[in-house]
Design a binder for these strands. Structure first.
Length: 646
RNA sequence: GCCCGAGUAGCUCAGACGGCAGAGCAACGCACUCGUAAUGCGUAGGUCAGGAGUUCGAUUCUCCUCUCGGGCUCCA
């Protein structure tokens, strides 16, 4: 028989040949790497018997799909190990996820896993891998399946169809299973690697609670997460990445670099910025403010609380009440802390009659908002209860919308690049089915405007079908940081709802009333979150323009201190952030401290420098230079600051 | 909000049968005066997260609360 490979080439095989035979025929290396095959577009186990004329692709772990298989199969090994070690345990589902897999279990009597259990479980998993158990595919009837999994209520739910079955293990009365003889059987659609010996580069990471089928009304199961890779090197690389992420954790660096803290006395999720963090934050804001002014934004200011009635009008009390702090009762009425700035900006728009000549009207504010986040979700600066948004609302005509969005998007990307981020992609969220307001035409027009704006940026755009808010579609800008993690930053959102709710209008050239289109946008998302992202992206080593202290001047001996002081003064006079540490400690110790603070520049001045009017320059990440004229250094520093790069 | 884990000096962490609380770093003082990542000696620093309970006695055992971490559910 003849089969066709992905590159279009054909290959002759004896009748009855399997996908593995094909891989072996192509090359020993491929046969060794292979995990599954795709036959006529369907993923199959490697022992699938091929037919004449089939299109066949051999899948290896060099692809995401191949890695998924490794992870999926490893999840089965985890389940087997847990069922071996914990009599009476039952299991839910165990899919592959990014970088690894998990499996959900329920232990008898509501028992829970202890982190120390992971070691035992992992040891058992290694035995299973060493045993090289085959993965044996089977299809049985629903009745047989119910009997086979009689002790496993969650599996029964899946079989009987009580649970929706995203894994499609059941179909027309047939239930698909995979067995690892001698004991273990799981419901599964597969495909899987041929045998457990193909696995082995994994590590169990953590245990956590997770609701059965992701619904908080369901019982909470015990979830074990693991990571799995095809090679030892890939596993190690991943573990290193995690270490690196830990090293960059903004919560850790925030304390070490004295940037911010979360005093218990204030409350969960409420940060205070210390002088150094405050400086960085001020610089972030100043630059952003400058750019916004250049781009035609006008600056407004609004209070932190307002009558509850305002949020009733805006609809926040209807659809965002869970995210709001409870009301304060005073003067016979209720007041709420604001969770968003939009109603306030709208009132500014509505403060007087508006002409089409004023549009687009772009109102910007560093607006502090308060959201009642559930106690379990606050997380460093990335998820807080009080935050400041670099928030703006653009009021424009329908005709202006497309151009505004396009300009806005390139404005965002340019701005973000100035902060050192440069790897972006976009996500377009469209109309959520069944719970959207506004006409089909409105949605179509706005979505098209966003889509076309996105398309003009030359970036990858992923579609988030149905992910928009009920009042309009949105684009979000995602950035990859220095170690490849993605963060959701800016959101740009078209809103049909609020202009209607507040009955906004402007007078057109035709002297008739028209409703403006409103665009919400926050580029940093929140200052706090963006601050955290910058800390992690730069690993605490802020580029010179953002560094809280740009230069530290150190005299070699204390008789150099007066000269060091003069240098410090001169730098400050020139608008730089410089300080000086006197010679109370040995030079090496003072340099070490400056390095631990990740300062961009340390200047060391000694006898030669005092005599020649020079400085020794110890720049972050560069070799030490001696005898640099002060003017030269100032020029360099100025260039650094202007470029935003170092 | 739910599940699991954890809170000991500013930071990182020891510690105990239920019987006066320990180290390193940081801080402060004195000495050292030094050319590129840790000078020496000394001093001070604690309601052992908070509150109840058990006990002759609780930082240690029990319960509750708060906060933090990892997840789930949510989300900037």
């Amino acid at each position: 028989m003849t089969v066709t490979l992905p590159d279009g080439s054909r290959r002759e095989l004896p009748a009855g040949a399997t996908a593995l035979d094909l891989a072996t025929d192509i090359g020993r290396r491929l046969a060794k790497d292979a995990v599954i095959a795709v036959v006529d577009g369907t993923e199959r186990d490697l022992d699938v018997v091929l037919h004449d004329g089939a299109d066949v692709a051999i899948v290896t772990p060099s692809t995401e799909r191949g890695l998924f298989t490794i992870r999926h199969s490893t999840a089965h090994v985890l389940a087997q190990a847990v069922l071996d070690l914990f009599p009476g345990a039952t299991f839910g589902i165990g899919p592959p996820v990014e970088n690894g897999f998990y499996y959900d279990f329920e232990l008898p009597g509501g028992a829970t896993f202890h982190p120390d259990d992971l070691e035992r479980i992992e040891a058992r998993m290694r035995e299973i891998v060493a045993a090289g158990q085959p993965f044996v595919r089977d299809e049985i009837s629903t009745e047989e399946a119910l009997a086979l999994f009689a002790d496993h209520r969650y599996k029964q739910e899946i079989i009987s169809g009580a649970a929706e079955d995203p894994t499609s293990v059941t179909e027309a009365g047939v239930v698909r299973t995979y067995a690892n003889p001698p004991r273990f059987v799981d419901l599964c659609r597969g495909p899987h690697v041929p045998h457990t010996g193909r696995l082995g580069h994994f590590k169990l990471m953590r245990v956590a609670g997770a609701y059965w089928r992701g619904d908080e009304r369901n019982p909470m199961l015990q979830r074990i997460y693991g990571t799995a890779w095809d090679t030892r090197a890939a596993l190690d690389a991943h573990l290193h990445m995690l270490e690196e992420a830990e090293r960059r954790d903004h919560r850790k660096l925030g304390a070490e670099l004295d940037l911010f803290s979360f005093p218990d006395e204030i409350g969960s999720g409420l940060a205070v910025f210390h002088p150094k963090g405050g400086t960085v934050r001020r610089l972030m804001e100043e630059f952003s403010r400058q750019r916004h002014e250049q781009a035609g934004y006008e600056f407004v200011n609004t209070p932190h609380i307002a009558k509850s009635e305002l949020f009733r009008t805006s609809g926040h009390l209807e659809w965002f009440a869970d995210g709001m702090f409870p009301p304060m009762e005073l003067d016979g009425g209720g007041y709420h802390l604001k969770p968003m700035n939009c109603p306030f900006h709208i009132l500014i728009f509505r403060a007087r009659g508006r002409s089409y000549r004023e549009l687009p009207l772009r109102m910007f504010e560093f607006g502090s908002v308060y959201r009642y986040e559930k106690s379990g979700v606050v997380h460093g600066l990335t998820r807080v209860r009080g935050m400041t948004q670099d928030d703006a609302h653009i009021f424009c005509t329908r005709e202006q919308m497309g151009g505004e969005l396009r300009n806005l998007l390139s404005f965002v990307l340019d701005l973000l690049r100035e902060y050192g981020l440069d790897d972006f992609f976009l996500e377009l969220s469209t109309r959520p089915e069944g719970k959207a307001v506004g006409s089909d035409e409105d949605w179509e027009e706005a979505t098209e405007a966003l889509r076309s704006a996105a398309g003009s940026m030359g970036l990858d755009t992923v579609l988030d079908e149905g992910g928009g808010a009920f009042y309009g579609p949105k684009i979000s800008v995602q950035a990859r940081d220095a170690i490849g993690r993605t963060w959701q930053l800016s959101t740009i959102q078209v809103d049909f709802q609020l202009p209607q709710r507040f009955d906004l209008h402007y007078t057109g050239a035709d002297n008739a009333r028209h409703q403006p289109v409103m665009v919400h946008r926050a580029l940093f998302g929140s200052i706090e979150r963006f601050f955290a992202i910058l800390v992690e992206h730069h690993a605490g080593a802020f580029p010179t323009w953002l560094a809280p202290v740009q230069v530290r001047v150190l005299g070699v001996r204390d008789d150099h201190d007066p000269y060091a002081f003069r240098i410090t003064d001169r730098l400050r006079g020139a608008g730089f952030r410089a300080d000086h540490v006197d010679a109370g400690e040995p030079l090496g110790a003072r340099i070490r401290k400056a390095k631990l603070e990740k300062l961009p520049y340390v200047l060391v001045v000694g006898d030669d420098d005092v005599a020649d009017g020079t400085v020794g320059v110890n720049a972050r990440g560069a070799a030490v230079e001696r005898g640099v004229p002060v003017d030269d250094f100032v020029d360099r520093l100025r260039a650094d600051v202007l470029s935003h790069t170092l």
